[in-house]
Simulated assay, not measured.
Amino acid sequence: MTVKVAVIYYSATGAVHALAQAVAEGAVSAGAEVRLRRVAELAPDSAIDENPLWRRHTDAAAELAQASVEDLAWADALAFGTPTRFGAPAAQLKQFIDQAGGLWRDGGLTDKPVTAFTSAYNRHGGSEATILSLANVFYHWGALIVPPGYTDPVVYAAGGNPYGTSSTGEGPDAAVLEAARYQGRRLAEITIRLLEGGRLAGTAADGGGARETTVGATSQTA
């Protein structure tokens, strides 16, 4: 089964962009169709110009596809990335999320698996708080949060953040990128399991014969 995953992120200096690419690679490795999308920059040029890294990445990202609410509707699963801003998501990502009110009202975000990742310059710069803050949005949506947890050694190697992959300093190192790939792969694999389970449950509801087929298929994959 092929699932559709949207990786939607904001990145100022490129650290979250690198994480987003790794998450997308992980989802693709599990057989997912992926849309990698950046959200719009809201900061004025005067602020961006004060940081050469910010200016360089902003210029380089100009050609990247920009996220839309349609991407949220299209996807079977969602991954959101943001730098931490005082322990909360960046305004750019929050502004994009705030556009999803209509889709949420119509039930278009209900039961979608979702995960999050972040980056902060300092080791204790608010990474966990930022991901937990995003989780408040996911609760309102009725989405299904899929954290990496402590489910693979790569999480420990990357610093041991069970809430979502996080990088510190100038950008993610090889261990953190591998953890991000794992997070994307885990999101896709769990989404496949959920959708296949729903399909099998629907088949079982058609009658006893279908139910027997479903049980057999489940046993073979357990």
Rank of each mutant, 00 (worst) to 15 (best):
residue 129 A to W: 09
residue 107 G to A: 05
residue 67 A to T: 12
residue 111 D to R: 10
residue 146 V to H: 04
residue 174 A to T: 15
residue 91 A to V: 10
residue 176 V to Q: 00
residue 117 F to V: 01
residue 155 V to G: 01
residue 181 R to W: 02
residue 138 F to A: 05
residue 85 R to N: 12
residue 160 G to A: 01
residue 178 E to W: 01
residue 77 A to Q: 10
residue 172 P to M: 05
residue 110 T to K: 15
residue 97 I to E: 09
residue 159 G to P: 02
residue 187 L to R: 03
residue 84 T to D: 14
residue 171 G to L: 07
residue 85 R to C: 02
residue 104 W to T: 07
residue 156 Y to A: 02
residue 74 W to N: 11
residue 122 N to L: 06
residue 168 T to C: 01
residue 140 H to W: 04
residue 138 F to N: 08
residue 119 S to T: 10
residue 163 Y to H: 08
residue 100 A to H: 09
residue 102 G to Q: 12
residue 178 E to R: 00
residue 164 G to W: 00
residue 100 A to I: 08
residue 70 E to I: 10
residue 130 T to N: 08
residue 165 T to F: 00
residue 159 G to C: 05
residue 169 G to I: 01
residue 122 N to W: 06
residue 101 G to M: 13
residue 126 G to H: 06
residue 176 V to S: 02
residue 145 I to R: 04
residue 71 D to C: 08
residue 93 L to D: 06
residue 92 Q to I: 03
residue 129 A to Y: 14
residue 94 K to V: 15
residue 121 Y to T: 11
residue 68 S to T: 15
residue 148 P to S: 07
residue 106 D to Y: 12
residue 134 L to E: 04
residue 89 P to R: 12
residue 156 Y to S: 02
residue 159 G to Q: 01
residue 86 F to T: 14
residue 172 P to Q: 03
residue 108 G to P: 14
residue 129 A to P: 07
residue 157 A to R: 00
residue 187 L to N: 09
residue 71 D to T: 03
residue 93 L to K: 08
residue 161 N to M: 00
residue 140 H to N: 14
residue 116 A to N: 10
residue 107 G to F: 11
residue 87 G to L: 06
residue 160 G to P: 03
residue 107 G to K: 05
residue 148 P to C: 04
residue 136 N to V: 15
residue 142 G to W: 03
residue 113 P to Q: 13
residue 75 A to M: 11
residue 179 A to W: 01
residue 115 T to N: 10
residue 113 P to L: 07
residue 168 T to W: 01
residue 159 G to K: 00
residue 125 G to D: 07
residue 134 L to A: 09
residue 132 L to Y: 12
residue 163 Y to T: 13
residue 128 E to C: 13
residue 144 L to P: 07
residue 185 R to G: 13
residue 113 P to T: 15
residue 122 N to S: 13
residue 167 S to N: 02
residue 81 G to M: 14
residue 71 D to S: 04
residue 94 K to F: 04
residue 92 Q to R: 10
residue 131 I to Y: 13
residue 132 L to T: 11
residue 109 L to A: 06
residue 66 Q to A: 13
residue 160 G to F: 01
residue 110 T to D: 15
residue 121 Y to W: 09
residue 136 N to I: 15
residue 67 A to W: 10
residue 108 G to W: 14
residue 159 G to H: 00
residue 165 T to G: 00
residue 155 V to C: 00
residue 182 Y to M: 01
residue 88 A to W: 08
residue 76 D to S: 04
residue 178 E to A: 02
residue 99 Q to W: 12
residue 184 G to Q: 04
residue 66 Q to D: 06
residue 162 P to K: 03
residue 107 G to I: 05
residue 67 A to S: 08
residue 142 G to L: 08
residue 96 F to M: 06
residue 137 V to Y: 14
residue 153 P to Y: 00
residue 132 L to K: 13
residue 184 G to R: 07
residue 72 L to F: 13
residue 119 S to D: 03
residue 97 I to K: 08
residue 176 V to N: 03
residue 168 T to Q: 05
residue 116 A to E: 12
residue 112 K to P: 07
residue 147 P to V: 15
residue 77 A to L: 04
residue 124 H to E: 14
residue 137 V to E: 13
residue 85 R to F: 07
residue 137 V to C: 09
residue 160 G to V: 02
residue 80 F to E: 13
residue 87 G to R: 01
residue 173 D to G: 01
residue 119 S to I: 09
residue 144 L to R: 09
residue 87 G to W: 09
residue 142 G to C: 07
residue 127 S to A: 12
residue 147 P to T: 03
residue 135 A to L: 13
